[in-house]
Simulated scan of single mutants.
Amino acid sequence: MPPEKETPEQKNEKSNSNEPDSSKETQFWGVERDLKAIGEFIVRFLSRHHRWLSPIFIAGESYGGFRVAKLARQLQQEFGVGLSGAILISPALEFSLLEANDYNLTTWATVLPSLAAAAAHHDRAQWAGQRGDLPAHIAAAEQFARQSLIPMLAMGEAFPEDERQAIYQQLAGLTGIPLSVVERLGGRIRIEVFARELLRDRQRIVGLYDASITAIDPFPDRMTYEGTDPTLDGLDRLFTGAINSHLRQTLGVETDLTYRLLNLETLKAWQFDFKGDWKQGFQGSVDDLRVGMTLNPYMQVSISHGIFDLVTPYFASNHLVSQMKLNSEIRSNLTLKHYPGGHMFYTWAESRQQWFAQMQAFYQNAIA
């Protein structure tokens, strides 16, 4: 049956609604149009405020870090905007590294150091070195991920059984997960399983976005975890209250529109494909960052993570940077620096102060 036509009353009701027209919004729900919208805004802002010759920096967190890496190329190549610096905070650079499965081996290795860091923080790990030496424990997990875990997973059934058991024992020691669970999972520890199993005996779970944070497991007797993430759903009310207060009281924004901290409707409908692009699979942004850095050999790049973030783990960025094959003339322009904390590591007072000092030096260096 053909769709019913809107009555004049329905059209009038929609035009008077406080909510935006979703049909106009959805055209921006995709990688390509989203980036172009940001580029268009930046160009108009620079023109309106006569700032074309000013030092220009872009910064983004999480998916915003993906945007920054893409824009490092697109702003300079398509919009003629020269950048002094690009700041990526807990970025998701290559989405293939966020999808853990039997055939993508790298993901299991890049998340391991963060699992080990969280286990040590909760004193559930067998410390690699002196007890309480977190950097040494993390370094041991990084080495183990590269030299032991990846070869075992890559060889599959062909890997010698006695060596496999030795690796399982090391993995259990680093992550604090029971050996029986590690064996059952074949050394592939999903972050959701880790969050449930690490403190199961205390009926507590750890956060995915900050595994140093714990919460009571509401269903401790069920086989699978059916509660919420304490670092996402548990903090939603705090950040929603803060941003609404900031918008209305500090910035004076007068609107009846609802601010959504996380819009799941947009997330599910987001278009990752590029028009006219024959590539298939997950979107990535590291190639764009590489091109952007070569287009402008003076642009400084900073990538920072929290070591307890399991969603966008710091070691994934370390791994990607090591694969970028940057020319020696520009390699020093890229800085990797990670801090105690989770996805929003700056909520930790000490990490915020250290990051603030790092950013001060970063800006000064970029405009020198």
Rank of each mutant, 00 (worst) to 15 (best):
Q27I: 15
F28N: 10
F28G: 03
F28L: 09
W29S: 07
G30L: 06
V31T: 14
V31R: 12
E32V: 04
R33Y: 12
D34M: 10
D34R: 13
D34V: 05
D34G: 11
L35C: 09
L35T: 08
K36V: 14
A37D: 10
I38F: 05
I38V: 11
G39H: 05
E40F: 09
I42P: 06
I42M: 11
V43L: 11
F45H: 09
F45C: 08
R48L: 10
R48G: 12
H49L: 13
H49E: 14
H49Y: 15
H49D: 14
H49K: 14
H50N: 15
R51H: 12
W52K: 14
W52Y: 13
W52N: 15
W52G: 01
S54I: 00
S54F: 15
S54L: 00
P55Q: 10
I58L: 05
I58V: 09
I58G: 06
I58S: 02
A59G: 03
A59V: 02
G60I: 02
G60H: 01
S62L: 03
S62V: 02
Y63T: 03
Y63H: 10
G64P: 01
G64S: 07
G65Q: 04
F66I: 02
F66H: 10
V68P: 01
A69Y: 02
A69W: 04
K70R: 14
K70V: 01
K70Q: 14
L71E: 03
A72T: 10
A72Y: 00
A72Q: 00
Q74M: 13
L75D: 08
Q76S: 09
Q77R: 15
Q77G: 08
F79T: 07
G80C: 07
G80Y: 08
V81L: 07
V81M: 08
G82H: 15
G82E: 12
G82A: 13
L83G: 02
L83M: 07
L83P: 04
L83A: 04
A86C: 10
I87E: 04
I87S: 01
L88W: 03
S90T: 07
S90H: 01
S90G: 09
P91W: 02
P91H: 04
P91R: 06
L93K: 05
L93A: 11
E94W: 01
F95V: 02
F95W: 11
L97T: 12
E99N: 15
E99H: 14
A100F: 14
A100E: 12
N101R: 07
D102F: 10
Y103M: 06
L105D: 11
T106S: 14
T106C: 03
W108L: 00
W108G: 09
W108D: 09
A109L: 12
A109Y: 10
A109F: 00
T110P: 02
T110R: 00
L112D: 10
S114V: 08
A117T: 11
A117H: 08
A118Y: 10
A118T: 14
A118S: 12
A120V: 00
H121N: 15
H121R: 13
H121C: 07
D123L: 05
R124C: 13
R124D: 02
R124I: 04
A125E: 10
A125Q: 09
Q126T: 14
W127P: 15
W127T: 13
A128R: 11
A128E: 13
A128G: 03
G129D: 03
G129L: 07
R131Y: 04
R131A: 11
G132P: 05
G132E: 01
G132D: 06
D133P: 00
L134M: 13
L134T: 09
P135N: 05
A136F: 06
H137I: 07
H137D: 10
